[in-house]
Design a protein around this nucleic acid. Structure first.
Length: 479
RNA sequence: GGCGGCUUGGCCAAGGGGUAAGGCAACGGCCUGCAAAGCCGUUAUUCUCCGGUUCAAAUCCGGAAGCCGCCUCCA
């Protein structure tokens, strides 16, 4: 089965056929590095990380470019507020971004260009647009793109310029030929970062950097361009206008846009004060729980971040690790050459517009089936059962590298969880062991009242006991 | 005002013309001293509502209601 992608430009799912056979060029809008990243950034990055991994998994050679916007009004404003240089600010937040993405097990893109390292390309791009009559320079230094010069303006977002002109929300600017014209180059005020250009000292507008850098690394037309839904208009619309006006060919074949993360059913906003930062989420939940949460709903739908959802996701992840541990204890392993029915289901789901939610459903189904086989076999499967279980194990290991989840050894996963629980609650494991010993003794002498009292006491600390044939084990429940 | 999306069991969430995946929760059973974990069973004749097309609709079409996003920096 072949890959289908929902293409914003077409408004529907389309068969994915790359421009050059076997190769994919993909550009995703990265952050403007002036502040700490929030859970919404994490979703976009994790979703495209999954897409990048899946394209690689099914055999494409992917060139993945994600930029840093490191010159921008917001950065300058921050610099004015804090007294730090713009460079100090952008370097700090690029570092932070990298650290957080590494923590979330996000693979580095093939290239991570910065706008400030491509000013020459940007200036060339703008000059050529002016030469072609697609852009114009006004007294004072601004260069604008003329949307009237690009007939197809609005084709990505489904808007037409006439409707937008009629709307009341467009600021009137006397210097612009059309109110919708957007900035390609703006003159610098004293003290602001600036570069020499044919239009005087200044800096690029936001939209032009992506057109210039994508052309530089991926060519004049490439396969996939991604970003958050909010970027469809105006950012991506403007990119299309710039690039197609200059190159005269289709800029991007497939446009992919991810949905937003809400917080307790509200949009993240400054006024609500509910910005939830990646570092806060990482402090509360393990990276795999966060990834599982972000991939548990289709990437185009909105997803709601709240404690209940995170708890559920966490329990689900434990369930899968418990199954893997059970397999390993039964002597079952597998490798990624060993493909079974789960892999088929997973592939079908992923090829259907990267439907990770459905893909995860198939993982849980396989876990349920596997647990049943183990139950029936009393955890000593015969050769036939072992073969089937081994395929499930191998499939999970393989798909874990696509999702970036279930990658730990189960024993390590639960050990880490214990450690975190102990650290969070300042629990000494020796105390737990002592209580368990006391309970074991109580059970032996049939003093079940005392035994249950101890169990309740531990329960109050989120510690759950499991009495098995080889003794009593304990684990933390929750995050 | 313009453009787009969503509404599936107690909660979360797939499906998107052929008779409702999965997770969490709950209840009953097996197991257990009792539990936990795991498994089995039960929990939507029904997919916001009203019409229509069809042998057949949650899925397509028309209409209504509610919710949300974009059009301003935004993942």
């Amino acid at each position: 089965m072949d890959l289908k992608i929902y293409n914003t430009l077409a408004g529907k799912k389309e068969a994915f056929v790359p421009i050059n056979e076997g190769k994919v060029g993909m550009y995703v809008c990265g952050p403007t590095v002036y502040d700490t990243s929030h859970i919404g950034h994490a979703r976009s990055v994790v979703v495209f990380d999954m897409i990048f991994r899946w394209l690689g998994q099914i055999g494409f050679e992917v060139t993945y470019v994600r930029n840093f916007t490191d010159v921008d009004d917001k950065i300058i404003r921050k610099s004015n507020e804090t007294g730090e240089t713009c460079t100090a600010i952008t370097e700090k937040y690029i570092d932070e971004f990298h650290n957080e993405m590494d923590a979330l097990n996000v693979l580095r893109p093939t290239m991570e260009p910065k706008a400030t390292e491509h000013i020459r390309h940007i200036i060339d791009f703008i000059q050529k647009l002016i030469d072609k009559g697609k852009a114009y320079h006004v007294p004072g230094g601004d260069v604008y793109f003329s949307i009237d010069s690009f007939e197809e303006y609005g084709k990505l977002s489904g808007r037409n310029p006439e409707d937008m002109r009629a709307g009341a929300r467009i600021a009137v600017d006397e210097k612009k030929q059309s109110p919708l014209d957007f900035t390609l180059w703006k003159p610098a005020k004293p003290g602001e970062p600036s570069w020499d250009s044919p239009w005087g000292k200044g800096r690029p507008g936001w939209h032009i950097e992506c057109s210039a850098m994508s052309a530089e690394y991926l060519g004049q037309g490439f396969d996939i361009h991604g970003g958050g839904k909010d970027l469809i208009f105006p950012h991506h619309e403007n990119e299309i206008a710039q690039s197609e006006a200059l190159f005269g060919c289709q800029f991007v074949k497939y446009w992919i846009h991810n949905g937003f993360v809400d917080i307790n059913n509200e949009k993240m906003s400054k006024s609500l004060g509910n910005f939830t930062m990646i570092k806060e989420v990482l402090a509360d939940y393990s990276p795999e729980v966060i990834r599982l949460f972000l991939l548990s709903k289709h990437y185009r739908s909105p997803i709601d971040y709240n404690e209940d959802s995170m708890r559920e996701v966490s329990l689900g992840l434990d369930r899968i690790y418990a199954f893997l541990e059970r397999l390993e204890d039964a002597g079952i392993t597998g490798d990624d050459q060993n493909r079974g029915g789960l892999w088929e289901d997973f592939t079908t789901a992923m090829n259907d517009d990267f439907n990770s939610a459905r893909a995860l459903g198939s993982v849980f189904e396989a876990v349920k089936r596997g647990n049943k086989i183990l139950d029936d076999a009393g955890d000593s499967p015969d050769a036939g059962a072992a073969t089937e279980l081994s395929a499930v194990y191998g499939d999970i290991k393989t798909l874990s590298r696509v999702l970036g989840i279930f990658m730990e050894a189960p024993k390590d996963w639960f050990a880490a969880k214990k450690e975190k629980g102990m650290a969070d609650q300042a629990i000494d494991p020796a105390d737990i062991d002592k209580l368990i010993e006391e309970r074991t003794a109580a059970r032996k002498s049939k003093n079940f009242a005392r035994a249950d009292e101890i169990r309740d006491q531990l329960q109050a600390m989120n510690i759950v006991l499991e009495d098995g044939p080889s003794g009593t084990f304990w684990r933390f429940e929750g995050k």
